[in-house]
């Protein structure tokens, strides 16, 4: 209540009763300002799309979009240059699939354990740890991958180099665990307790109530968490750049060096000559990445909306 008094007294002293004119203007001006800020967000999305597209356009005079996506070779500065990003798409696919295969089960296990089985002390221990895991910058993950995980992978699989898609995917798996865990835990927690009661009252064991009612009821939210994790893994740059191995050849397996679209952008956009075909090709790659993540986040958002509605309805 103290706050209120302070605020109220400030309000009295600041606003003597003046004429209506300037006050009226202030109201309109402020409303216009905030509206402008809101619309700026829409403008930002449109601008990102517009700039990616306009910078990428010169490429499509040289390489058609379809050839760009399915082309198996990327030789941007040779003569004549070849712009095919299939190796990077396949590289991303390998790395993201492995990251999800490893990270999603772990994240879900953490979510279910935290939502359903953990006591308050375990939860208060796990919370900050997961926050930290989510907060570690990706370049630090890259260092961990480079100095810790890669040597292990090389030794375990007796590979010539530990810098492979497998290594990158493994590190990414750790990065997405907190995303899956926190969002799925929230989804499970937001299922009304009545569902559990109803199931128990019908003779379900607590275990059955959890797995046949609660978790299925949270499935939209859980699926959204997986999609968001996938988006994050797909857009992740530094880790895959540092530990992916960076080979330009179409990868035929997981345990070989490979490169993703993001890593290519990070390496090459620093030196591509402005307004060259190479520069345009990099923006085209950005556009492809933008489009993929756009649809992933859109789908995740749909699922979250559905989860909200499903629970809110009675």
């Amino acid at each position: 209540m103290d706050k209120w008094h302070k605020a109220a007294s400030r309000f009295r002293t600041r606003r003597p009763l003046r004429g209506a004119g300037p006050a009226w203007l202030l109201e309109i001006g402020f409303a216009a300002l905030v509206r402008l800020a809101g619309y700026l967000l829409i403008a930002a999305v449109l601008l990102i799309f517009y700039f990616l597209f306009s910078q990428a356009r010169p490429l499509f005079g040289h390489t058609a979009l379809w050839d760009f996506i399915t082309g198996p070779r990327w030789l941007p500065v040779s003569e004549p240059p070849l712009f095919g990003i299939l190796p990077f798409i396949v590289g991303s696919a390998w790395i993201v699939s492995w990251a999800l295969a490893l990270g999603v089960p772990l994240g879900l296990a953490v979510a279910v354990y935290l939502a359903e089985m953990a006591g308050p002390r375990v939860r208060s221990l796990a919370g900050p740890l997961l926050t930290t895991l989510a907060g570690i910058p990706s370049v630090v993950y890259g260092v961990i991958g480079l100095l810790v995980v890669a040597p292990w992978v090389a030794r375990l699989l007796s590979l010539p180099t530990g810098l492979t898609g497998l290594t990158a995917g493994t590190v990414l798996a750790l990065m997405i665990v907190p995303t899956v865990a926190t969002l799925s835990e929230e989804a499970i927690r937001s299922v009304p307790e009545e569902y559990r009661e109803a199931a128990l009252a019908m003779g379900a064991t607590p275990f059955q109530a959890r797995w046949t009612v609660l978790i299925p009821a949270a499935s939209s939210g859980i699926a959204a968490s997986v999609l968001l994790a996938m988006g994050r893994a797909l857009g992740e740059t530094m880790t895959v750049l540092m530990v992916g191995g960076g080979r330009l050849v179409l990868p035929t397996g997981l345990a070989v060096p490979m490169r993703t679209m993001t890593a290519t952008l990070a390496v090459e956009s620093a030196y591509a000559v402005h307004r060259s075909l190479h520069y345009a090709a990099l923006f085209a790659m950005g556009l492809v990445l933008f489009a993929i993540t756009f649809f992933i986040t859109l789908a995740a958002d749909r699922l979250l909306q559905r989860a909200k509605r499903g629970v809110g309805q009675t």
Binding site: A198, A199, L200, A201, M202, G203, A204, A217, V311
Partner: peptide, 20 residues
């Protein structure tokens, strides 16, 4: 209790069908 609740069913104040 699991067997018991199969024999003794319960209907709650607020309808609580599962979301399926």
């Amino acid at each position: 209790v699991v067997q018991l609740r199969q024999k003794v069913g319960m209907v709650f104040q607020k309808p609580n069908p599962f979301p399926r």
